[in-house]
């Protein structure tokens, strides 16, 4: 209860509902990402849902707890990891199959419609999900840290004072 961020954010009701909902939101986002090659969805849509889960925490509990849940450094590292995995899959396509982004893991016909099928596509989906989720979370983190104000007759971007990062 001595948490300095406890008074930030919205009311107790919103925080409690957020605590219940965030797990389900993350689970749904992960499902959309992982089953992207079987059902509608995929890396982009699932990544946006994951980002929505983090943004819900960010908005309901305030920027302090939001940054502790997913810090800006961790977010940019995950973002870069997603980009690296996606490019690495493309480069491995050259190394193992001879063509950029070659699907170098063949899927036998009996494996169709299973979760473990279609070679590198699930890996790409996970990489894009990581990338999109963390990128879009950072959009909100960046935009909520600065705002436009009039200083000396001109409009300028200034940082909000409570953001100490």
């Amino acid at each position: 209860m001595n948490d300095p961020h406890a008074k930030e954010g919205m009311s107790l009701i919103v925080k409690t509902v957020t605590r219940w909902l965030k797990g389900f939101l993350l689970l749904y986002g992960a499902y959309i990402v992982l089953y992207g090659h079987l059902t509608p969805g995929g890396g982009f849509a699932g990544g946006v849902i994951v980002a929505c889960a983090f943004i819900l925490v960010f908005l309901a509990c305030g920027a302090g707890i939001g940054h502790r849940t997913l810090g800006r450094l961790a977010a940019s590292e995950l973002d870069s990891a997603g980009a690296l995995i996606f490019t690495a899959v493309g480069a491995l396509g050259i190394a193992l199959g001879g063509v950029f982004f070659r699907n170098f893991i063949r899927t036998p016909p009996e494996a169709h419609f299973r979760l473990l099928s279609s070679g590198v596509i699930p890996v790409c989906n996970i990489a894009i999900g990581l990338k999109v989720g963390t990128s879009l979370f950072m959009v909100l983190a960046i935009l909520s840290a600065v705002h436009v104000a009039v200083k000396g007759g001109r409009r300028r971007m200034v940082r909000r004072r409570e953001d100490k990062s």
Binding site: L38, G82, G90, F100, F101, T107, S117, C124, V139
Partner: peptide, 30 residues
Amino acid sequence: TGAANIVTAVILDFRAYDTLGEATVLFCAI
């Protein structure tokens, strides 16, 4: 491709290079 969802098969296998470009745009923007 082995992917049951033909949309995913196109964007991540046949046209994966396009998707790489989109991912690069988002990455550079952030």
